[in-house]
Design a binder for these strands. Structure first.
Length: 522
RNA sequence: GGCUCGGUACCCAAGUGGUAAGGGAGCGCUCUGCAAAAGCGUCAUUCAGCGGUUCGAAUCCGCUCCGAGCCUCCA
């Protein structure tokens, strides 16, 4: 089996054949650093992080370039608003970007260029386009002439008439065609600017990516990726300016990730219906968020569902009620209402994630109970099937949802095995070790299951105790009370104590070595 | 208005011509003094609707209904 991926350019799944055997030139459009990242960014970068990991696991030597757009109108606006220099704004949000991406386990790119560090290349590229008559200078601005590039709109599969019918294109008399876009914009007073043959100014939005890709990867890339919303105009314009200058195909494969919706509408800054990554991570596990994204195919649109609860009585309420800050006799603050919002999909993913970690914990314990030994394992066919299904799913256009489901049989078998290891014991021990290794192998490609299970489970417990405000001293006291009731065989009393503990959100588990407790799952 | 994509069980979701993966919830069972965890079983004669093509359709074609995205800055 070989890797197949969906190419936006051709509209179909194709076998992946890199331009140079064994090597992949991979470019992903990065963020404009003027604000904190939201969940939509998280989904996109998790998606392309998995693509990177799978390419590498498949044996490719990947050069991964992901840029930072640090010269842009929105950054300038932000700088003016905050009364600081534009570069301070971008520096700050690059740091914030790393904080969020690191939390989500997203790997650093091989090269992470910035627009501000690529000016000579950008200017040279624009000069080349002007010299080749694909671009023209008007006063101190430079525009790309879309009519000079026959392949224009081949990626988004539109035609100029359709776009013009939209009638939302800026009417600028100075452009030869309304679709022409700026390569260089002359500086307005107070803006950061760079010297150029056309005077002080800065690059237009699209040219930077072409210049950065050319500089670090050459004129032809294997894969160019980004969010679906970049297909037009951003990627379309990148193709036009790059290919007009180089006369070779800019990227062989174009990959686009689906949008993240909230309440059935795309999450976006302009609509204001967004959650920043970090505000959601206050309430949920980062790895669970990552897993949530991977339970759906990367090209499909994912809905981020919210469940609204009354902060006072806990009842499930409608969004309208939650926003009205009043539910029957309960009244609450906006902050309380926000804290009571449940992220349905992530909560579900978190349950599954910790089922995996508990399973790994049991496998590790069994594996460590005896020195490692050589020999056959139990159900080798189950292991082999899970492994090949996982790889096949990933090879089929990065079908992470199917890959994840291929681990199910392995997980239930692991639990069965660890709970009652069949004899001979050394065979069970080897099998547990093999299953754990296989789960971790697949997990590494998804960027999941790499934590220390004991630590992850313990940390989650601490987090849930804090979130549910469980009084551990009270729990311990009740546990003592129950212990004496049990030793005296006063089971009715013991059960009454169990009920009290349940009311506190605590589950008690009686083991041969005594009673332990955990936070009750919702 | 134009162009795309989608509608699969109570919920999430894979599957794009060979007879409906997986997960969550629910229910039943095993284990347990009770419980939890874990395991097992059960849970869509059917894939928005209606026609058509085919030996065979969730998958292909046509129409209808519904939802979303893009056409302006967006991941």
């Amino acid at each position: 089996m070989s890797l197949r991926l969906f190419n936006t350019l051709t509209g179909q799944k194709e076998t992946f054949v890199p331009l140079e055997p064994g090597r992949v030139r991979y470019y992903v459009c990065g963020v404009t650093v003027y604000d904190l990242c939201h969940l939509g960014h998280a989904r996109t970068y998790v998606t392309f992080d998995v693509v990177l990991r799978h390419l590498r696991a498949s044996g490719f030597d990947v050069t991964y370039v992901r840029n930072f757009t640090d010269v842009d109108d929105k950054i300038i606006n932000r700088a003016n608003k905050d009364g600081v220099h534009a570069l301070e704004v971008s520096k700050r949000y690059i740091d914030e970007f790393y904080t969020d991406m690191d939390a989500l386990g997203i790997l650093r790119a091989t090269i992470e260029p910035k627009v501000s560090g690529t000016m000579p290349e950008i200017i040279a590229l624009i000069e080349k386009l002007v010299a080749g008559k694909n671009a023209y200078v008007v006063e101190r601005d430079v525009y790309f002439a879309v009519d000079t590039f026959p392949g224009y709109l081949k990626l988004s599969k539109r035609n100029v008439e359709d776009l013009e019918a939209g009638a939302r294109v800026d009417v600028d008399e100075r452009k030869k065609n309304p679709m022409d876009f700026a390569l260089w914009k002359s500086a307005k007073p107070g803006e950061p600017s760079w010297d150029s043959p056309w005077g002080k100014g800065r690059p237009g939005w699209h040219i930077e990516c072409s210049a950065m890709a050319f500089r670090h990867l050459g004129e032809s890339l294997d894969i160019h990726a980004g969010g679906r919303d970049l297909i037009f105009p951003h990627h379309e314009n990148e193709i036009a300016q790059s290919e007009a200058a180089s006369h070779v195909p800019f990227a062989k494969y174009w990959m686009h990730s689906g949008m993240l919706n909230i309440d059935d509408t795309k999450m976006s800054k302009s609509l204001g219906n967004f959650f920043t990554i970090r505000e959601v991570l206050k309430d949920v596990d980062a790895e669970a968020m990552r897993m949530f994204f991977l339970t759906a195919h990367y090209r499909s649109q994912v809905s981020f569902d919210l469940a609204y609860h009354c902060p006072k009585c806990g009842a499930l309420v409608t969004r309208q009620i939650a926003e009205s800050l009043r539910h029957d006799a309960c009244a609450f603050t906006k902050e309380e209402a926000r804290r009571a919002v449940k992220f349905v999909g992530i909560d579900e993913a978190e349950k599954r994630l910790f089922y995996v970690y508990r399973t790994l914990m049991k496998c590790d314990a069994l594996a460590a109970s005896m020195p490692a030994s050589e020999g056959p394992v139990l159900k080798p066919e189950l292991l082999a099937k899970a492994s090949s299904e996982f790889t096949e799913a990933m090879d089929d256009d990065f079908n992470t949802a199917a890959a994840l489901s291929s681990t199910s049989a392995l997980l239930s078998f692991a639990n069965e095995l660890c709970d009652k290891p069949p004899k001979p014991r050394d065979q069970s021990v080897r099998t547990a070790a093999r299953i754990a290794a296989e789960l971790r192998r697949g997990g590494a490609i998804l960027g999941l299951f790499q934590g220390d299970p004991v630590k992850r489970v313990a940390d989650r417990r601490v987090r849930l105790i804090a979130a549910k405000k469980i009084d551990t001293a009270a729990v311990d006291a009740l546990l003592e009370e129950r212990k004496s009731a049990r030793t005296e065989k006063r089971f009715a009393d013991a059960d009454a104590v169990r009920a009290k503990l349940a009311a506190l959100g605590v589950d008690v588990k009686d083991t041969p070595s005594g009673s332990v407790w955990d936070v009750k799952e919702d």
